[in-house]
């Protein structure tokens, strides 16, 4: 008898929650909340603070999308995911989008059936070693013990790199960055390898950051970006163009300080006007309000502001723009035109 209660309650709950057949965009609007998958904790990219507020660069993308769709940057449910759970969470519809330093690869795109909507951080896998080891190149690492974060592409890159260079190594797989840092600092591994941004962020938190060097070799391309499920192109467009709006805003000079003025009194730059919805009907085409991009930019600032606030040179993480500068400054950020 009690058993049937349990199953009954289950099914009831299932039916109640089971109206996910419509498009993701409609779902999000109906729900009034965006379910955004994030990491369980990477310095600068996503972690909860003391008040339970999520902060970070990837988190900023989630907030921008929520602001664009719902007009409220705080209408986000952050769903912490691990390397293992992230893809199933997205595939099963538990989250609407994943913004969790995830590398865009062929098999993830094609075989796992996800759509990467763009790149919000161009990264590459690097190595960090203590200075006292006297190593200046990754090719000198024969026989070294290497800490790697498991559940990522880094494991495969590492295996490939050492095999092609014919050097031996001892991998130490580690679940989280915090643990990896502890092992590395204690000397339980000679080298720590992960995305270069992660290395810089980790090094910045050390007692003595200058005692550690990043080796010049970058052994892989790691374009990190937000992704959505295959087959829901409308939703994919929303996320893709929200990201593009943040990038384009920096390019054309919209920031959170001047955005009020620019949208109140349309200037004579048509692209700015189109982005801010004072000209044309881009928002309508996306199925959003006219001020969608304005809301997205207001949520945390344009791409550059997000970068500076969370991982830029003035933060403890201290990353330089590098590849992530606008194409006009020699970087790779290149938003398609808003027209």
């Amino acid at each position: 008898m009690k058993k049937s209660v349990f199953l009954g309650a289950l099914t009831a709950a299932g039916l109640a929650a089971g109206a996910a057949a419509a498009g993701t965009l409609d779902d999000v609007k109906a729900r009034g909340k965006l379910n955004c998958g994030v990491t369980t904790g990477v310095v600068g990219f996503g972690a909860p603070d003391a008040n339970g507020e999520w902060q970070g660069f990837d988190v900023g993308v989630c907030r921008a999308v929520a602001a664009a769709v719902l007009g409220d940057a705080s209408a986000v449910e952050f769903v912490p995911t691990t390397g293992k759970t992230r893809f199933t969470a997205l595939a099963s519809g538990e989250i609407d989008m994943l913004a969790r330093n995830t590398t865009w690869t062929f098999s993830r795109d094609v075989d796992l059936k996800f759509t990467f909507v763009g790149v919000n951080y161009y990264d590459g896998q690097g190595f960090m070693v203590p200075k006292e080891l006297g190593v200046s190149s990754a090719t000198e690492l024969d026989g070294a013990t290497v800490c790697i974060q498991t559940g990522t592409t880094t494991e495969l890159n590492l295996a490939d790199y050492f095999r092609s260079n014919n050097i031996s190594y001892e991998p130490v797989p580690i679940e989280t960055n915090a643990e990896a840092q502890q092992q590395y600092l204690a000397g339980a591994c000679d080298v720590y390898t992960t995305d270069a941004s992660g290395l810089a962020a980790t090094r910045s938190a050390f007692e003595d950051p200058t005692a550690h060097v990043l080796l010049p070799e970058i052994i892989s391309k790691e374009p990190l970006g937000p992704l959505v499920r295959h087959g829901d192109n409308e939703w994919g467009d929303v996320v893709r163009w929200t990201l593009n709006a943040l990038i384009a805003a920096e390019e054309v000079g919209i920031n959170s300080a001047n955005i009020g003025d620019l949208s109140a009194a349309p200037g004579n730059n048509p692209e700015i006007n189109r982005i801010l919805g004072t000209e044309g009907n881009l928002g309508e085409m996306l199925g959003l309000s006219a001020d969608w991009a304005k809301n997205a930019i207001m949520a945390g600032g344009n791409y550059g502001e997000l970068f500076e606030k969370n991982i830029g040179e003035n933060t403890p993480v201290g990353l330089a723009r590098g590849l992530n500068a606008q194409w006009t400054n020699g970087g790779l950020l290149y938003s398609p035109p808003f027209r």
């Binding site: 369980t40 904790g41 990477v42 310095v43 600068g44 972690a47 909860p48 603070d49 912490p80 995911t81 691990t82 293992k84 759970t85 679940e175 989280t176 960055n177 915090a178 840092q181 502890q182 600092l185 980790t202 910045s204 938190a205 050390f206 007692e207 933060t315 403890p316 993480v317």
Partner: peptide, 25 residues
């Protein structure tokens, strides 16, 4: 915590990822 829920152990990882408390064990 292994599947990413923020129970005390999972939260401790989040706290250790905060730039202020990075390195606490």
């Amino acid at each position: 915590s292994i599947i990413g829920l923020l129970d005390p152990l999972g939260l401790s990882q989040g706290i250790r990822a905060d730039a202020n408390w990075n390195g606490i064990v």
